[in-house]
Amino acid sequence: MIKITNLEKFYRTEEVETIALNKLSIEIATGEFVAIMGPSGCGKSTLLNILGMLDDPDAGSYVFNEIEVAHFTERKRADLRKHNIGFVFQSFNLIDELTVFENVELPLIYTGVPSSERVKRVEEVLDKMQIMHRRNHYPQQLSGGQQQRVAIARAVVNKPKLILADEPTGNLDSSNGNDVMELLTDLNEQGTTIIMVTHSEHDARYSHRIIRLLDGQSVMENIMV
């Protein structure tokens, strides 16, 4: 599904140039659950942003579903992104002014799903995430675990092929964290490819494969059994 080759990304300030990704090559197959680990500043988030088409690489190739996207325009990337990729953030990034239902509905609005279909799909996914009873609440009224469920619901409502999760349990206690990991595992079992950045060895154990980064390079891959 994903094939990156010799991917490079630099950050420049006036005086220093930081190499975030250094000729990184990775391949991820459809249906995989991959964890990316590494110390702070190793390039995990940069990689995730590029994979999520939120950012573009400075050099190298990124093939997504057989399509070279490395030098796509923002508009094309956005288009590809909203149909194929769902995001889960550490800080949930729910919109405070919208209810649970409306937050989850948002991606469907942007992909032009008709209203009646939207209601059906949102309800379906809220049900699956067991937060149907909270549908009319605002994010501030929910616990962290519930907020992350809403965020996951929002990420999957469009039935994306790929979910990118950036420390999805980072702001949660261990019990809520485990629930979230179970949810992701279920999604993966139903066929969704998942790439997750994490600091937690515990969370990483849910994945099929761990890619360890250091200084923008892949230093080790563990295959989980």
Partner: peptide, 16 residues
């Protein structure tokens, strides 16, 4: 800005 960011990540076109 954060709201704008989230909306954009979720696929909102600029005109919206």
């Amino acid at each position: 800005a954060r709201e704008v960011g989230v909306r954009k990540v979720l696929g909102s076109p600029r005109k919206y």
